[in-house]
């Protein structure tokens, strides 16, 4: 159900994605994340095109953490920030974090290889139905994504929406 990827640049780090729909306790989850009781980033899946998008954000977050260059205070908030095309932290949370009324959520967990992978804790906290991560495309809102990342029709001629989104995420710090 979940999807785990080892980061080639940091072979001791693993990124796991868990996707839930029909979530009934988004407000409670958001509060636990704010309080630091959930060891992961909670993302609004309607803004995600593909699991690769999350991996790009997570890889960059881990890299900036190791270099001491993070723009936000925690790794999970840095992942959310990296998804955004702009450099405004509050905007990133508004668009890519979850809101109290949301009915679906993507949880991203970054773990050390030495830790035993255990996601029962997260699964038990979410009052919803876990679905395969590859089904993310069923939840994504392409209109909203195109608008936020300012993807033009001519750009989609030379690549996919994922390409456009990832390019912007990767280069936003130097534009």
């Amino acid at each position: 159900m979940h999807l785990t990827q080892e980061l080639e640049l940091f072979p001791d780090v693993r990124v796991t994605q868990l996707l839930f729909k029909e979530v009934k306790n988004a407000a409670e989850l958001r509060q636990s994340a704010v309080d630091g009781k959930i060891n992961g980033a909670l993302i609004n899946p309607t803004m995600l095109v593909d699991p690769f998008q999350v991996l790009v954000a997570a890889n960059k977050a881990v890299c900036f953490q190791k270099n001491g260059k993070m723009k936000t205070r925690a790794l999970s908030s840095e992942i959310i920030f990296n998804l955004s095309p702009t450099n405004k932290i509050s905007d990133a949370f508004k668009r890519f974090g979850i809101s109290d009324g949301d009915d679906c959520v993507m949880v991203v967990v970054v773990q050390d290889k030495s830790e035993t992978p255990c996601f029962d804790d997260i699964v038990s906290k979410v009052d919803g139905c876990q679905i395969p991560v590859k089904d993310i495309s069923l939840l994504s809102d392409h209109m909203k994504i195109k608008k936020l990342y300012k993807v033009t029709p001519q750009e989609e001629k030379c690549g996919t929406l994922l390409d456009a989104v990832v390019s912007r995420m990767a280069t936003k710090d130097v534009l």
């Binding site: 001519q154 750009e155 030379c158 690549g159 390409d163 990832v166 990767a170 280069t171």
Partner: peptide, 11 residues
């Protein structure tokens, strides 16, 4: 890329 000219995607 924004102008629709194919070039490699930056990851």
């Amino acid at each position: 890329r924004k102008a629709g000219i194919p070039a490699p995607v930056v990851y």
